[in-house]
Design a protein around this nucleic acid. Sequence first.
DNA 1: GTGAAAGCGCTAACAG
DNA 2: CTGTTAGCGCTTTCAC
Lengths: 330, 330
Amino acid sequence: MSFPKITIKDVAKKAGVSIATVSRYLNNFPLRKDNKDKVAQAVQELNYRPLLYARRLAGGKLNTFGLILPGYEGIFYSFYALEIIREVAAATSGNAIDLHLNIFWDKDTFQSSLADGVILADIINNQRQLERLVEEAIPLVVVNKKIEDPEVSFVAINNFKGAYEAVEFLIHHGHKQIAHFAGDLRVQCAQERLDGYKSALAKNNLEFKEALVRKTNFSRKETREQLEKLFALPQVPTAIFCCSDEVASEVLSFAEEKRIEVPKKLSLIGFDDNPHCLYGNLMLTTIRQPLKAMVQQGVKILKEIIDGQKTPQRVVLDTELIIRDTVGFI
Amino acid sequence: MSFPKITIKDVAKKAGVSIATVSRYLNNFPLRKDNKDKVAQAVQELNYRPLLYARRLAGGKLNTFGLILPGYEGIFYSFYALEIIREVAAATSGNAIDLHLNIFWDKDTFQSSLADGVILADIINNQRQLERLVEEAIPLVVVNKKIEDPEVSFVAINNFKGAYEAVEFLIHHGHKQIAHFAGDLRVQCAQERLDGYKSALAKNNLEFKEALVRKTNFSRKETREQLEKLFALPQVPTAIFCCSDEVASEVLSFAEEKRIEVPKKLSLIGFDDNPHCLYGNLMLTTIRQPLKAMVQQGVKILKEIIDGQKTPQRVVLDTELIIRDTVGFI
DNA sequence: GTGAAAGCGCTAACAG
DNA sequence: CTGTTAGCGCTTTCAC
């Protein structure tokens, strides 16, 4: 602000070279050793930092990625959102890349000119935004959602398979009355987990019962409400496959309150491998989803796209069943 | 990328006016109606969006705020961090301002040139960064921490008073053995809450006992560990004042498991008024901290600073005791 | 290897 | 009110 901001000119003058030479130094072009040293020293002494937007205007990079999160109600109540932000921040800062965060509430306010590329963390109600960005031909990668229509790169999780394995694991322990606490079904991963649940039942000739599927929207509160209803039913399930560890964790508290023994009377599998949920005397059996790997891959792909490698890549990562304390034979 | 990006020139040509007129239109300067309409239409048809960095270079604004979060271990496990991000995002997007997110891990990587101003959410280990930004004279405001030394604007919470009131509330209910589950004491708010606790005890002639103060670092896991230890003591407290609702919530589960009746045998006060912790049959009595108001004020102040009003403002907001189910007489 | 100079897209005087 | 023009700070030809 109105500060005598030092520019590339000042550095050039101080080092006794042209601004072009300084620019080359900044961009790691080969320089004669003595010049290089002089410039380095001048930069140091003046504590010079190039203005990124000027650089960008002249054809350089901003070294900034955009991160767009769909701001649907609930995303902020999730382990997931922060995890994504953290991992993206970690993955980018390791590459000296800054992050431009944009939350899609209802209007598309993302300024693509402020980023070299964009990471979209799931697409919930911002499909049109995605299309706009594709149209603008800005490098982008979608994370945590498989996208069919615009042909874009994405890195997603095989939620279906993860859920399938979880439920089959329960079945192999002799369970026949298996409930599913589902998430917000407008979110792809929640839908896929439900599908995996259904599919595992079908493959194992178990009847699908509507009453055993409960919508929690990933929230503890709604989980609690559903628990009260579910356990008021004549026939109570012997196992519950939950859409998230937080939901499973709430089931665990409920069970402890009601003195329902886990895993003797009730088996439980979560989803996420959320470290917050690892407390108490029982460790949750769960499906680990490789969020970190997903984000890292996404960032890597985005960098490749920006650097000119343009084939859209579609990656689906597998989950892993983590066996701990909450599943037993019946 | 390498797309025939449309510029202000294209718009000018299409509208049959000069680029200056287009610029004026974009910046809401008075224009003759017919010209205004022509430009508006051209902008519309070409789907033109100005390049923010070019605008900025020419003296305009980026309409972007920086948000710096100190990346100490634990910040990502907190309700707090997401709440701050969400509120900042909400407060800025309401003003058509974008957010440049930077997490301070160990190096100062924040590019001040990519923002018109900066919001620093607490200062944990980035005091030097704060000093650098002050030196660069970039508009900034610190949120959730009272800063003495560089004379900067801040908006903070009166944690001391909040804690004091909580503990006094317990004392007025007849409690004499009051424990405190403290947070990470390197964080100012945790220290202030501890101080408030101590002060309330002292003012009411109650002895301060080291053994009744337990460090949880705001984590459920450590809370659980401390609970085991605390309740193994010969004399058990009749009330616990917790540094956060999450910690209090964990105490609640513990109590339910151990069949310690709340609030009959154990009274409990949290801190935050965290909606995630409102489930189960008991509603937590807590200290509400106005995070939203804090962030909104911070954004407002930052805007004023950017617009030239330069007196540093120091604001401390009061908390509010929310009386619900978890405190009883003894 | 290096310097001079053009120009990225926009805003802000300055005349008219 | 509007058009002309001079930069903003940087990268990138193009000569040397």
